[in-house]
Amino acid sequence: MASNGLVSVESRFGVAETIDRLVETVTGAGLRVFARIDHAAGAHEISAPLRPTELLIFGHPKGGTPLMQDRQLAGIDLPIKALAWEDEQGKAWLSYNDTQWLAERHGLSEASRDAVTAIAAGMEKVIAAAAGTN
């Protein structure tokens, strides 16, 4: 499923386990986890219903810095984010911004092509590992 620059992959695991697996995968690949946000827990604090929804923010300066050197405003979309969420049927999904969409959004030049390609390939691998689709 892809729309509006988002890529969504169905996970074989629940939301929390999917994010746990993503943390393990990205840290194992030498990336940094900057934040893990449990949106459903936040909703619970205000007595509002929300299906399981967790956001992981991760990356490495080696990947993002070249994009920001090209177009500094790309930093609004960096580090990389992935959202694990449960749909109305109870299926878990892992969604992230399509790297090519980010390149187009920010008007990244040819100088960023290799970095964009590397980030896209890395995202496919870590998402597949976390979702159990590899």
Rank of each mutant, 00 (worst) to 15 (best):
I57T: 14
F34Q: 14
T65E: 02
I46E: 09
L108G: 02
T117Q: 05
Y96S: 10
T25D: 07
A35I: 09
T99D: 01
G132K: 12
A121G: 13
G5Q: 08
V33G: 05
A131N: 00
S95W: 07
G64C: 13
V23R: 15
W85P: 09
P66G: 03
N97T: 06
D87P: 09
H39K: 11
F34H: 13
I19Q: 07
N4S: 14
R21V: 06
P66C: 04
K125L: 12
A130E: 04
W101P: 00
S95G: 10
W101K: 02
Q72N: 12
R12A: 15
M123C: 08
E86C: 06
M68N: 04
G64P: 05
G90E: 05
H39V: 15
S47C: 12
E88K: 10
A130R: 08
K125F: 00
F34D: 11
T99G: 01
E88W: 01
G64I: 05
G75E: 05
A121L: 00
L50N: 08
S109T: 04
A131S: 13
K125A: 15
I119H: 06
T53C: 15
Q69P: 02
V23G: 06
D38G: 10
L102P: 01
E124V: 14
V116N: 03
M123S: 10
G59W: 01
A40D: 12
L22K: 11
W101C: 05
I80Y: 13
H60L: 05
S109N: 03
D20A: 14
S11C: 07
D77R: 03
D114N: 09
E104M: 06
Q72V: 14
A74G: 04
A131Y: 00
I80D: 00
A2V: 13
G75A: 14
L55V: 15
